[in-house]
Simulated assay, not measured.
Amino acid sequence: MTHHTTQHDAEQAPGRLRIAVASPGDPYDRRTWSGSTYFIVKALEPFVRSLTWIGPLTIPHQDLKKRLAAVRHRITGLRTYPERTLKASQHFARCIDKRLDQEAFDLLLAPAASVETAHIETRIPLVYISDATFALMQEVYPIFSSMGDAAATEHRFEQAVINRADLLVYPSHWAARSAVTTYGADPDKVRVAPFGANLDTPPSREASLGRRVKGRLELLFLAKEWERKGGDIAFHTLKSLIDNGVDARLTVCGTVPPASFRHEQMTVIPYLNKNIPEERARFQEVLNRSHLLLLPTRAECYGVVFCEAAAYGLPVFATDVGGVGTIVENGVNGHLLPPDADGADFACLIRDTALDPTTYMRLNTESRRRYEEHLNWDAWGRTMVHEISRVLRVKQR
Rank of each mutant, 00 (worst) to 15 (best):
Y141A: 05
F195Q: 05
R191Q: 10
P194D: 00
T133Y: 01
T181Q: 14
T182E: 13
F134T: 04
A118K: 02
W174M: 08
Q159F: 03
V180R: 08
F134N: 06
N198R: 09
T181R: 15
T153L: 11
V169M: 10
Q159W: 03
A165S: 15
R191P: 01
E121T: 09
F157D: 06
D186C: 05
W174K: 08
Q159D: 11
T181Y: 03
I120E: 02
E154S: 10
E139C: 10
T133N: 02
S145M: 09
V140I: 15
D149A: 14
Y170E: 08
S145G: 13
A132I: 02
V161S: 10
V140C: 06
P194Q: 03
A118R: 02
D186Y: 01
G196N: 05
P125H: 10
S172M: 01
A160D: 13
G148Q: 06
V169G: 03
P142K: 05
Y128V: 04
Y128I: 07
T133P: 06
I143M: 15
H119C: 03
R177T: 14
A185F: 03
F195S: 02
A152E: 08
V169Q: 06
V169N: 08
P194W: 01
Q138D: 07
V161W: 10
A152D: 02
V127R: 04
M147P: 00
P194G: 02
D166E: 15
L168M: 12
D149R: 15
E121G: 12
A175V: 05
M137H: 10
Y141E: 04
H119T: 03
R191L: 02
S178F: 08
A152N: 02
D131A: 10
E139I: 03
F134L: 09
A193E: 08
N163F: 07
F144N: 12
V169E: 09
T182W: 06
D166Y: 01
D188R: 15
V190E: 05
A152M: 00
V190P: 01
S178T: 09
V192M: 03
F144G: 02
L167D: 04
A197W: 03
I162G: 03
L126P: 04
L136T: 04
H173G: 15
K189H: 08
M137P: 06
H155N: 09
Q138S: 07
G196T: 00
N198A: 05
Y183N: 10
E139Q: 15
A151I: 09
M137V: 07
F144V: 00
N163G: 15
A132H: 12
A135N: 11
D188F: 04
N198T: 07
I124T: 06
A150P: 01
R156I: 06
D131Y: 07
A179M: 02
A152V: 10
E139K: 13
T133F: 07
L126Q: 10
L168T: 03
A150K: 05
R123A: 11
L167M: 12
D131C: 06
Q138M: 14
V180H: 01
S130H: 11
H155S: 07
F195W: 15
A165N: 13
E158R: 02
G148F: 09
T133H: 00
Y141M: 10
F157S: 05
A165Q: 12
A135W: 09
Y170W: 11
T181N: 13
D131I: 05
V180A: 04
A118P: 04
P142M: 07
N198P: 02
K189D: 01
A135F: 13
M147R: 13
A151Y: 12
A118N: 05
S178V: 10
T181E: 14
M147H: 07
